[in-house]
Computed example of a mutant assay.
Amino acid sequence: MKTTDEMRTLFDKWAKGQKRVAGSGEKIPDRFITDDKTMIQWRTESDSGGATIDIFPSNPKSRAERHLKVHLPIKKK
């Protein structure tokens, strides 16, 4: 992925047909729960810069799997 639009298309694909739940204002406007209780959300901004897709698996196998993130590469200054 090279653009936020491409990332948003991926998020929309993952969210399609899933249960929409309340977001958290402007920063997290879209949040969905999948059939297996995994939560995915669209975050408009992050500390790493730009939009992020957050994934919270319902049954993580390790600490590293508790919160997965999809974002564009950080632009070098």
Results as ranks from 00 to 15, higher is better:
residue 10 L to Y: 08
residue 11 F to G: 05
residue 11 F to L: 01
residue 13 K to V: 13
residue 14 W to S: 01
residue 14 W to C: 13
residue 15 A to C: 10
residue 16 K to M: 01
residue 16 K to T: 12
residue 17 G to I: 04
residue 18 Q to R: 09
residue 19 K to E: 14
residue 19 K to C: 04
residue 20 R to V: 03
residue 20 R to Q: 12
residue 20 R to H: 00
residue 21 V to T: 03
residue 21 V to A: 00
residue 22 A to E: 11
residue 22 A to T: 09
residue 23 G to C: 11
residue 23 G to P: 01
residue 23 G to V: 03
residue 24 S to L: 12
residue 24 S to W: 10
residue 24 S to A: 10
residue 25 G to N: 02
residue 26 E to R: 07
residue 27 K to N: 10
residue 28 I to G: 10
residue 29 P to N: 08
residue 30 D to F: 04
residue 30 D to K: 05
residue 30 D to H: 14
residue 31 R to H: 08
residue 31 R to I: 09
residue 32 F to Y: 14
residue 32 F to Q: 14
residue 33 I to W: 05
residue 34 T to V: 11
residue 34 T to Y: 08
residue 35 D to P: 05
residue 37 K to E: 01
residue 38 T to G: 07
residue 38 T to Q: 07
residue 39 M to V: 11
residue 39 M to A: 08
residue 40 I to C: 04
residue 40 I to P: 11
residue 40 I to N: 07
residue 40 I to D: 07
residue 41 Q to M: 14
residue 43 R to M: 13
residue 44 T to L: 07
residue 44 T to F: 07
residue 45 E to Q: 11
residue 45 E to C: 09
residue 46 S to W: 08
residue 47 D to R: 06
residue 47 D to M: 03
residue 47 D to Y: 01
residue 48 S to Q: 10
residue 49 G to Q: 01
residue 49 G to Y: 00
residue 49 G to I: 00
residue 50 G to Q: 05
residue 50 G to V: 13
residue 51 A to P: 15
residue 51 A to I: 13
residue 51 A to T: 15
residue 52 T to W: 15
residue 52 T to H: 08
residue 52 T to P: 09
residue 53 I to C: 01
residue 53 I to N: 02
residue 53 I to K: 12
residue 54 D to L: 10
residue 54 D to N: 14
residue 55 I to N: 04
residue 56 F to W: 05
residue 56 F to V: 10
residue 56 F to S: 03
residue 56 F to P: 09
residue 56 F to D: 11
residue 57 P to H: 02
residue 57 P to D: 06
residue 57 P to C: 04
residue 61 K to M: 10
residue 62 S to D: 06
residue 62 S to R: 06
residue 64 A to D: 15
residue 64 A to Q: 08
residue 64 A to G: 06
residue 65 E to F: 13
residue 67 H to I: 02
residue 68 L to N: 02
residue 68 L to C: 08
residue 68 L to R: 15
residue 69 K to W: 04
residue 71 H to P: 02
residue 71 H to N: 05
residue 72 L to S: 00
residue 73 P to K: 13
residue 75 K to I: 07
residue 75 K to T: 15
residue 76 K to H: 05
